[in-house]
Design a protein around this nucleic acid. Structure first.
Lengths: 240, 240
DNA sequence: ATCTCCTTTTGAACGTGTTCAAGTAGATGT
DNA sequence: ACATCTACTTGAACACGTTCAAAAGGAGAT
């Protein structure tokens, strides 16, 4: 897919509707300052109450300049998400390096997410609200977040691959994506979870993981396998 | 719950942050004109491209007057939600009156939703965005929407009750709620579904319902039943 | 009629996200 | 040194959601 390109001003080429990515060290620095200022302000007063003018001021640039690097205000939230998933990926990798059984690996991935996300729980609602809109670039299903989504699915792929779990090949093939979907469910639950330290979300993970473990292994018994294959078939046709 | 109230202008009492509800026949009429104009315009040009000024113009009132009756532009979406669920409840009742098998009853409930929702697909995203924020009263999980949620679950309870489905009592007891959860999943898929006439959502329902049917019946066979009971146990503990 | 008290309506602002034409600056070639 | 090309920066403007003080109706009571 080649993006349409327009000549801009005196010559800079810019993808239609998208901001330019920095082409110099100076630009890189300016963009970093803007994103960093935004994160600070979001944390301090929340997303809605943070204005793009305040972000530009805090970054020491003009309002218009901020829009040279950032497509929309919503796109700035992506930085939060990036930071969080980076922390999660790292922590999950640590668990996957030492755990062998499927159940413990899976529990580790979900639990490290809860750990990594905890500092942001208070603002997560606001961010979640914006991510929920289908047309938003922040939606976990949007093209813009495909890289992040793929990275996340990759964690589950590794959790499956390095484990002792046994199931039909077709099931194993779709399992990472299905586990990612469950992850989205956990996130949904977590966002709504007002219990101390999000204890209920942790309970959900603690109890759901053994169930998933048993369910996956069940797909090998005749009578269940047929249903499992149909589930896989449905998932595949919906992806297409 | 008693809402805080402030004296307004020359004396009208108005709940903080909320628009006044009409206190006269004239007011009722004005509000109806505004809501109706909004729905028309949303349908004609979409939510984003409809401006509040255009709504006010079409309704034959001033911009400020529209805000006397409507808290925010997004609140106008509530009107379409109300319309939609009324239509769905009615249509679903029709299906449940004539279908007997569990699979057909269930498919009917989901499909009548897709029918009722289709005209509003474009701004469903906006509504969804609002509903996604955990603290929002519009959230399907909020206390404020408990009546609407119960009504919706009631449809599934009726779909189960009047059908031929057989499963352990514990499963049957939680089934309506679980089917409602699946309904939320269908809605999620539908909201993101950009295919012509949301064909993919219809395919999802067409294929998922027989699967659910088989899965529910499977809970009677030993070996599966244990897992099913644990699922039920988890759901119950999470509800508490 | 006039007064009083609410309710409704208005038009003019205000704040904020976003756009844009024009200007600056640093590198590169001559 | 100068010209040029391109990446970057700016400040002003625009559109639209939202707010507000003030004016206009209108239904009793006097």
């Amino acid at each position: 897919m080649t993006a349409k390109v327009l000549p801009l001003m005196t010559g800079n080429l810019r993808v239609v509707g998208e901001p330019a990515s920095p082409r110099s060290a100076r630009g890189e620095q300016t963009k970093a300052a803007i994103v960093s200022a935004a994160l600070d302000l979001f944390k301090e007063r929340g997303y809605e109450k943070t204005t793009m003018r305040a972000v530009a001021d805090a970054a020491g640039v003009s309002l218009g300049n901020a829009y040279y690097y950032v497509a929309t205000k919503e796109h700035l939230i992506q930085a939060f998400y990036d930071r969080m998933s980076e922390a999660h990926t790292e922590a999950a990798a640590g668990v996957l390096a030492r755990e062998k059984t499927f159940a413990r690996r899976l529990a580790g991935v979900y639990e490290t997410f809860l750990d990594a996300a905890e500092p942001y729980h208070e603002f997560a609602g606001k961010f979640f609200k914006n991510a929920a809109e289908p047309t938003s670039p922040l939606s976990p299903f949007s093209p813009e977040s495909a890289p992040a989504r793929e990275a996340s699915i990759g964690i589950f792929r590794e959790a499956v691959r390095g484990s002792d779990v046994k199931a039909p090949a077709a099931v194993l093939a779709e399992l990472p994506e299905l586990l990612w979907l469950l992850h989205m469910g956990v996130v949904l639950f977590w966002v709504h979870d007002t219990s101390e330290g999000q204890q209920r979300s942790r309970m959900l993970v603690r109890h759901a993981v053994p169930l998933v473990d048993r369910l996956v292994r069940l797909t090998r018994v005749p009578g269940v396998r047929g249903v499992a294959d149909d589930v896989i078939g449905l998932v595949r046709s919906l992806k297409g």
